[in-house]
């Protein structure tokens, strides 16, 4: 029998660097309160959001993804040509095909790296890190560019009181590569399609084409999602710590998907983390940016000096699908 070579595995992977890009427009609560018959106070009290960053019409999802990626590549100290896979988690790439990732690979100089998109909504970045970790440790790719990016403002209904007023635009990027020591814990991830309709679109593109429905925009069943996001995701967060072998007091930060500050507050309360653990609240100024929110929030904590390279952070994404993913990572 002929000899068959398989990729040689390596033991560990880590996140080398992060990059961030946000929308260029600061949108206040007063700016959006009118069509939902609301107020700055009502929005702050229910969401914690003071402003959300949105991209102007001529600033595309790809523009933000390229900016974030270039920062991450530069900080990682690698050449774009060394990237051996590009993963783009997004739900707002406005083409069914080709993928956003293949264009991103071209634009950042990573052509001909394999490139593909992940559709896991607010869990997308953690799904991407899970994939990148596996690709690196399996020996399939040396360096992987993972991007979570969204231009959610293209898919909002200004009169929707369920989710639209939470949403912002941005992109976060990470370079994942080989490591001498553990840098990314085993992912705890999954989905629950029985709640497929809890977060999603108002209709399909086919309905829109056939004149049955309007342009699809985002919508959610807020109470159901809140219950799932807190009480089910607390179980996932605890499981992620357990499989990582990390105690809560060893964490420097909890970086959840920035869905709603009330969810973050309740999750932190349920986890009973020590006061030493920094809880990311980038949502207050950036809004909910779906797949981008975790890398943006971690990037902000680093920029503010509230966490440092080498710290341990629990990151957990959750959203439409319903889909969820969590890891403990060493902060780059």
């Amino acid at each position: 029998m002929a000899k068959l070579n398989q990729a040689e595995t390596i033991a560990f992977s880590k996140i080398y660097s992060l990059g961030a890009s946000r929308g260029d427009l600061t949108v206040t609560n007063d700016d959006i309160a009118g069509p939902i018959n609301s107020s700055d106070e009502w929005i702050r009290q229910r969401t914690g959001i003071v402003t959300r960053m949105r991209a102007s019409k001529d600033r595309s999802l790809m523009d933000m993804a390229v900016e974030a990626s270039n920062e991450a590549i530069e900080k990682a100290g690698i050449k774009p040509a060394e990237i051996e896979a590009v993963i783009f988690s997004t739900i707002t790439h406005p083409y069914q095909t080709p993928s956003a990732a293949s264009l991103l690979a071209e634009l950042v100089g990573a052509n001909p790296a394999p490139a593909f998109d992940i559709s896991a909504a607010c869990a997308g970045y953690c799904y991407g890190i899970a994939q990148a970790d596996s690709l690196v440790r399996s020996g399939t790719a040396k360096y992987v560019l993972v991007v979570g990016g969204e231009k959610l403002s293209d898919f909002v209904d200004p009169t929707d009181r369920s989710i639209s007023f939470l949403l912002g635009d941005g992109a976060g990027a990470a370079i994942v590569g080989p490591s001498d020591s553990p840098g990314i814990s085993k992912s705890v991830w999954g989905s629950d399609g029985s709640k497929w309709e809890a977060v999603g679109m108002t209709g399909s593109l086919l309905d829109f084409r056939d004149g049955i429905g309007s342009w699809p925009t985002l919508v959610q069943e807020g109470q159901s999602v809140f219950r799932w996001a807190v009480w089910e995701m607390v179980k996932v967060a605890k499981q992620a710590l357990e499989v990582a072998g990390v105690k809560p007091e060893e964490l420097a930060a909890l970086v959840t998907h920035q869905a709603n500050e009330r969810i973050i507050d309740e999750m932190a309360k349920q986890l009973a983390l020590p006061e030493s653990v920094v809880v990311a609240r980038d949502i207050v100024t950036t809004g909910n940016t779906s797949a981008a929110s975790i890398p943006l929030a971690m990037h902000a904590l680093l920029a503010e000096g509230r966490i440092k390279s080498g710290d341990l952070a629990l990151q957990i994404g959750f959203g439409a699908g319903l889909a969820y993913g969590a890891q403990v990572v060493v902060v780059p």
């Binding site: 009290q45 229910r46 807020g222 109470q223 809140f226 219950r227 807190v230 009480w231 709603n260 009330r262 309740e266």
Partner: peptide
Amino acid sequence: IDSISMMTIVV
């Protein structure tokens, strides 16, 4: 009591 607090009370 808002919808989020209501759900916390329910749980």
